[in-house]
Simulated assay, not measured.
Amino acid sequence: METAQRWLDHPEPTTPALVRHGLRTLLKKGHPGALALLGFAPASVDVDGPHLADTQVPWGGEVRFTAVLRNSGPEPARLAIDYVMHHRKANGNLSTKVFKLTTRDLPSGEELVINRAHSFRSITTRRYYPGGHAVALQVNGIATAPVPFELLPTDGAPGS
């Protein structure tokens, strides 16, 4: 954090991108200092969602969700918006993975509509297990309550 601050005090043209990249793990974890360093202060934002299109997702399908963010504060808000997937592991526990959605400046009184789909097709870097999963939004490091859904088993799927 100290190094990043020092670099931002006397930036070169490539410094902001380098600092954002270096702080990406802290940003995904919602670290207040890292967020503040990049201009994401606590904001008065009302989050309606996420709302799921369906609570049962077929194997290889996708979970679709929407949300509406409204700036209820008197000032414009700079927002770092992510979504958090709570994936079911082989032992039945949940493991979280944060995915970047967008960064936006939201004027006072304005709304932002989020529409997203997260795929559960087979990939080589992650193994999916049928059963309960969940999704949440994270705005400037503050997560909403997870919304549960079920990944349906199919023949050949682990755990089915």
Rank of each mutant, 00 (worst) to 15 (best):
Y129M: 03
L101M: 14
R88V: 02
R126F: 13
T15H: 09
Y129A: 09
R24H: 11
R88Y: 09
T103N: 13
V139Q: 06
A136S: 15
E110V: 01
G131E: 04
A157F: 01
G61W: 06
G156T: 04
T144E: 08
A134F: 07
L106A: 07
N93A: 15
A90T: 04
L38E: 05
P153G: 02
D9N: 14
H118G: 01
T124P: 03
S108N: 09
P11T: 02
G156C: 03
L38V: 10
R6Y: 08
T66D: 14
R78E: 12
S95N: 12
L37Q: 00
K28H: 14
H87D: 12
G73Q: 05
L8S: 09
Q5D: 11
H133S: 01
K28M: 14
S95W: 09
L112S: 10
A34H: 03
E12P: 04
A41Y: 12
R6W: 11
A143C: 03
I81V: 15
H133P: 06
W59A: 13
T25P: 01
G73V: 06
P16Y: 04
P32V: 02
P58C: 05
P13W: 08
H21N: 05
T154E: 12
T102F: 07
S44V: 01
A43G: 10
F120V: 08
P58N: 06
A17L: 10
G61Y: 09
P32I: 06
P42W: 03
R116Q: 15
T15P: 08
L69F: 06
G39F: 01
R70C: 09
P76V: 09
G39N: 05
G61F: 10
A117L: 10
P76K: 10
E75P: 00
G73W: 05
I114S: 01
T144S: 12
Q56W: 07
T103S: 14
K100V: 12
A43V: 07
S160L: 08
R126L: 15
P130I: 01
A77V: 05
P74K: 05
A34M: 01
T124L: 13
Q5F: 02
